[in-house]
């Protein structure tokens, strides 16, 4: 019984919402709640937190009530760790390199790394894609739109 429950997606979905709801409710009590007439900043989140907990319990309940579905795996069948990693790494590199070395470096790294996330991508194809996007990106954002983001810089 408990074993099947652990395999259900709604078990985790409901659990997450209950946790979030409880967290919000507890956090809301640290602000002034006030009275119903003069509500403080804590009242609205407090109510929402309780409602969210309740909804979470209901989702949890549907996990108990329904039979095990066919596809209850939370992660998709093909795990795209490389794809996911690259997509997240791209913007992270954009922040780091953009902050210290300017727009060109940030853009190039962002596109290059995230393009590598595709299975068919090669270093060469990603390089040319990144070069192209960097060229047009700089053209549009630096020259046409005059975004205050230096193309090159060294340190902060």
């Amino acid at each position: 019984m408990f074993q099947t429950l652990l395999r259900k997606r709604d078990f985790y979905a409901g659990g997450l919402m209950v946790l979030l709801g409880l967290g919000v409710t507890l956090n809301a009590t640290t602000y002034t709640t006030g009275t119903l007439m003069h509500m403080g900043p804590g009242m609205f989140p407090f109510i929402l937190g309780i409602v969210l907990t309740f909804v979470g319990i209901l989702i949890f309940g549907t996990a108990l009530a329904t039979p095990l579905g066919e596809d209850e795996h939370i992660l998709p069948r093909n795990k795209e760790w490389r794809g996911w990693g690259c997509i997240l790494a791209g913007p992270v590199l954009f922040i780091i390199l953009g902050e210290f070395f300017g727009m060109v470096a940030g853009t190039f790294a962002c596109v290059f790394v995230s393009a590598l996330g595709d299975r068919e991508a090669t270093l060469k194809s990603s390089f040319w894609l990144a070069a192209g996007v960097t060229f047009f990106g700089v053209l549009i954002f630096s020259y046409v739109l005059q975004l205050p983001f230096p193309m090159f810089r060294w340190g902060r």
């Binding site: 997509i87 791209g90 913007p91 954009f94 922040i95 953009g98 727009m103 940030g106 853009t107 962002c110 596109v111 290059f112 995230s114 393009a115 996330g117 595709d118 068919e120 991508a121 194809s125 990603s126 894609l129 990144a130 996007v133 990106g137 954002f141 739109l145 975004l147 983001f149």
Partner: peptide
């Protein structure tokens, strides 16, 4: 799609930054 999403990611980053 392999050309599309990296380019879109750049627009996402620069859009949010701006």
């Amino acid at each position: 799609y392999r050309y599309l999403y990296p380019s879109a990611l750049f627009f996402v980053c620069i859009g949010v930054y701006s």
